[in-house]
Design a binder for these strands. Structure first.
Lengths: 210, 210
DNA sequence: CAAATTTTTGACCGGTTGGACAAACGTTAG
DNA sequence: CTAACGTTTGTCCAACCGGTCAAAAATTTG
């Protein structure tokens, strides 16, 4: 097999490309793709625009590279959802891991949200392919738990959606969450509060115990 | 009291301004503020760019007007949440109304999401003022229900967040939802499925009944 | 060292964008 | 009819943006 089209990279290439991707993540996630300029990214990366374009020849290339990396790590928690172990515990852990990702990687979450909001023009094939396959697979795992009476019967797909929605909300709508909670409760503790609340919601719902 | 600074408007002014706002909602909600051009909005409204600028002197003025209108209708369901009636029913109705809004006004939802995602630069005062006041007030209503043993004790603020997140998800992440559900289940029925699922989630959680 | 290669930069370009402006057009009231 | 007023448009501009290019600077290689 021939050496494919993957360009060979020097040490500097690798380092600078990382620098640019880090800067681009910051800029893209707060301004969106069209709202961000190459100059902004270059300045955030501490280099001139033509220099940046030496490492990524087009603005879209940066975004694409960023997106490819993101998707792998972003779906890792769902991939880990496994049939071994207690179902309720397994789901609780999935929710916790997703919430930790919203806390630790809010920029990645916003980058993804931005892309989806605008109709996912650049990652549509991946949504209909890789993502759908993964979700269908995990939905079947959850269906098995329901048939075994381990968790209540409900729609597994919408269950997954609701976990995505509630956890990513703390990254994507962070400013709103902090504004509403106020300076007292909007501090670092809000993720622990959210974790406690979500666990209770997903396990027991709102019906009083009696 | 003197006639305040509100400009007087002719019939045509009122009609054309509506036309522009409708077109701008369409364009802004799919491309974001910076991603939208005055030309796009003008074309969607069926007029020339200078003509549009005769009715709104700056691009930002359109966005601001749109945002002000949005916020009133957007928070209406929460305002209706009332102390009269059965708490669980009241919450169930709130969730249903919010989900209907995600179904019937997805553009408004995306416009709002776009603004929050970018750090809410134009509506921050409203989040810390009007919105926080309203949410605090309703959180106290919910707290009353908890004290009375009508619903399980939990964090009312995060409860409200979770309702926002799960319902708006079906507007903001619509393309992802449809891609994952596929052509069979991603059709018009998805909102009924979501309504059923969310009701069960919020009332009973996932713990099996036995 | 010197040659070869990689990296960095300033200057530049064509296209787009938000917005200004004056002139043309249409409408209405006297 | 005509003057006044409201509406529409073609033209123009300065700023911005993505991207090119050639040449300079730095680094690696022999």
């Amino acid at each position: 097999m021939v050496e494919s089209s993957a360009p060979r990279r020097t040490r500097i290439q690798l380092e600078k490309r990382e620098l640019i991707l880090e800067a681009a993540l910051e800029v893209f996630s707060t301004n969106g793709f069209r709202g961000s300029t190459i100059d902004q990214i270059a300045e955030a990366a501490g280099m001139s625009k033509p220099n940046l374009l030496y490492y990524f020849r087009r603005k879209e290339d940066i975004h694409e590279t960023l997106m490819q990396r993101l998707l792998d790590t972003w779906l890792a928690p769902l991939r880990e959802l496994d049939d071994i172990g207690d179902p309720l515990t397994e789901l609780r852990n999935y929710i916790r891991r997703k919430l930790e990702m919203a806390r630790d990687f809010p920029r990645e979450s916003r980058l993804f949200a931005n892309e989806i909001l605008q109709g996912a023009p650049r990652i549509m094939p991946m949504l209909e392919g890789e993502l759908k396959t993964l979700v269908d697979e995990k939905a079947n795992v959850i269906k098995g738990w329901m048939r075994a009476g381990k968790i209540a019967r409900t729609d597994p797909w919408h269950l997954i959606f609701s976990i995505w929605a509630t956890t990513q909300h703390y990254a994507d709508f962070d400013v709103q969450v902090r504004a509403v909670l106020g300076p007292d409760r909007g501090g670092d503790g809000r993720f622990e509060d959210a974790a406690r609340f979500l666990e209770q919601l997903f396990i027991d719902g709102l019906k009083p115990k009696n």
